[in-house]
Design a protein around this nucleic acid. Structure first.
Length: 255
DNA sequence: GCGACAG
DNA sequence: ATCTTGTCGC
């Protein structure tokens, strides 16, 4: 019996060492702010570090990140999953999961502080790691320019793209055409903060935005590539991460 | 003050 | 996010 693909495992102690190393120089309050005011300040500081250009190397592997949670969980657990795919074939190469206790409830605009800590734990266990990660949620299409995709990307200084299923702030400046690939700018306060993108006919558009170290055009191109030849609304990395996170929650995967 | 509000 | 199977339609 062999595993369909590699899955890293190891003691929790190794994970925290790996995470600490990856987060060298990152202020603790960027991950665990004491209150919402500190969280807002952290977001503004991190937003200044976002690089909205294609400042990344060759992308041989694509990643997906998502979390899952129980409806009524007294423990407040968050189950995270990271997946790595071959960028050319979209075939899965690796996956890793982690379970943590949410320090925050879900508050629109502060999703990162709820989910990022557990995503970091999963990242520590992922091997091989991707060159570019699609995160379930917004990037800079956020009130302070730091949605979860940018949050995760800036902390690790890893290229990320935000792929959200609904709008947080702003609105498409026009209706999105019916054909896959059709798009409309997502505008907020007179600024283009993302793109509403039709990835599948007869399905609502997804909202793509810069996460970190990628341009908006690059982000849109990657999302379209990751949807090519599938018949799904969500790009393959996001889809697989979503399924993996559910398996973690159901105890079918380490977490 | 009134709505809107990623997952 | 999650509760939930099959079913109708393109």
């Amino acid at each position: 019996m062999r595993k369909p693909f590699h899955q890293a495992r190891g003691p929790a102690a190794d994970d925290s060492a790996t995470i600490r190393a990856a987060l060298r120089g990152v202020p603790p309050e960027w991950i665990h702010p004491p209150d919402l005011d500190a969280a807002r300040a952290a977001q503004r500081a991190m937003a200044e570090r976002v690089i909205a250009e294609d400042a990344h190397g060759p992308v041989a592997r694509l990643g997906g990140a998502d979390t899952s949670a129980e409806r009524f969980d007294p423990e407040g657990r968050v189950h995270a999953a990271l997946v790595t795919l071959d960028a050319a074939t979209l075939a899965p190469l690796a996956e890793a999961g982690a379970t943590g206790i949410a320090a925050f409830p879900y508050i629109p605009g502060f999703l990162g502080f709820r989910e990022v800590p557990t995503l970091l734990a999963a990242w520590a266990r992922l091997d091989p790691r991707p060159d570019l990660v699609m995160v379930d949620g917004h990037g800079v299409a956020h009130p302070r320019g730091l949605g979860i995709a940018s949050h995760f990307g800036v902390l690790l200084d890893v290229p990320t793209i935000g792929v959200a299923k609904s709008v947080l702030v702003g609105a498409p400046e026009e209706e999105v055409g019916p054909a896959p690939g059709a798009r409309a700018n997502l505008v907020w306060r007179g600024r283009v903060i993302g793109v509403a993108l039709r990835t599948r006919a007869r399905a609502r558009p997804v909202y793509v935005s810069v996460g970190h170290r990628v341009s908006l055009e690059g982000a849109v191109a990657w999302v379209l590539r990751a949807c090519a030849g599938r018949g799904y609304r969500l790009p393959e990395p996001t889809r697989l991460a979503h399924r993996a996170a559910n398996r973690v929650r159901r105890g079918e995967r380490p977490g």
